[in-house]
């Protein structure tokens, strides 16, 4: 009887969160599906266009270009945060002194305000007055690139900032994973004469596989959501060369107020991330034992 009452109270306290979820998350998600079949500028009456937005999207060169940017970005960001995050975690897990200090240090960029972070990076990357280019000139490079304004570099610059900023977060996930590995396994391998590299390659890495898998999925989702660094550093430029899907959705929704098109893009992004996750789940069987 008493426990029943407790359960009822639990529901009561869950109501605010559930209402929030329904009204601010699930509601808009469902509405966006309907909106994606309309032409709607927010202030007027939506006009039904069937699959029009999806067709426009697939026939637009701009869309394919941005999809390509999104893919290239993911191919830099996901391996970037995975390798750097894992590397930092493994180094910190070797029992070096001041490990908590370094752990905090590497995590710091992740919790620093995006505005502060991107202002600093903007200055580092600035063509004429930037720290990076002045350093390169000092080294003897006479004509260093315009990192944020060159279509060959802008996306790479964004991915670099994101990896630097977020690797610390993935490091924490890996650290948690590493602490779940029984140290006696590594000690046994060492006793059997394995080198440090062999211990990492044949003991740590396979046992860390479930964490790695989780990290890759999360990194994939995060890479598809990239917005803040783009907004603050390049606004998608030059000539859309660093625009990825999430930023393109923002442009269409909140600059052009083309909500139908933006909703169609958002659903496509959702499907693509879903597919990539599915592929990962399939492949997982090949490389993860857990």
């Amino acid at each position: 009887m008493e426990s029943r009452r407790v359960t009822n109270y639990a529901y009561l306290f869950l109501i605010p969160a559930l209402v929030g979820l329904l009204v601010f998350r699930l509601g808009p998600i469902a509405a966006a599906f309907g909106i994606s079949f309309t032409n709607w500028n927010v202030i007027g009456v939506p006009e039904w266009v069937g699959f029009g937005n999806y067709l426009t999207m697939l026939q637009s060169g701009e869309f394919w270009f941005i999809l390509q940017n999104t893919t290239v970005y993911a191919l830099m960001y996901v391996p970037g945060v995975t390798v750097v995050g894992m590397g930092l975690a493994v180094l910190l897990n070797t029992g070096i002194r001041a490990a908590p200090f370094f752990r905090g240090l590497y995590f710091l960029p992740y919790i620093t305000s995006t505005v502060a972070v991107t202002l600093t990076w903007r200055w580092i990357f600035s063509t004429r007055f930037g720290l990076l280019n002045n350093f390169l000139k000092w080294l003897g490079f006479t004509d260093p690139p315009a990192w944020l304004a060159d279509p060959n570099w802008a996306l790479i610059a964004l991915a670099t900032v994101s990896v630097w900023r977020e690797a610390g977060f993935f490091m924490l996930l890996f650290l948690a994973g590493l602490q779940g590995i029984d140290p006696t396994l590594r000690e046994a391998a060492r006793v059997d004469g394995a080198t440090r590299w062999q211990v990492f390659r044949y003991v740590t890495l396979p046992l860390l596989a479930p964490t790695t898998f989780f990290v890759i999925i999360i990194a994939l989702v995060r890479s598809s959501q990239t917005f803040e660094v783009t907004f603050a550093l390049t606004e998608g430029g030059p000539n859309q060369a660093s625009t990825t899907l999430a930023f393109f959705i923002y442009q269409n929704a909140f600059i052009h107020f083309d909500m139908g098109y933006a909703s169609a893009l958002a659903y496509l992004l959702c499907i693509l991330v879903g597919l990539a996750t599915l592929v990962n789940f399939r492949l997982r069987r090949r490389w993860s034992y857990a």
């Binding site: 315009a146 907004f231 606004e235 430029g237 030059p238 000539n239 859309q240 060369a241 600059i255 052009h256």
Partner: peptide, 27 residues
């Protein structure tokens, strides 16, 4: 839809603005 074809505000890197910048930058 001026903002879209012209490239304005946070879409300044697109549309006519983005293309002209490619000319200015010699690309």
């Amino acid at each position: 839809a001026w903002s879209k074809w012209r490239g304005y505000a946070a879409t300044e890197s697109g549309g006519m603005n983005g293309e002209l910048d490619e000319v200015f930058n010699g690309r």
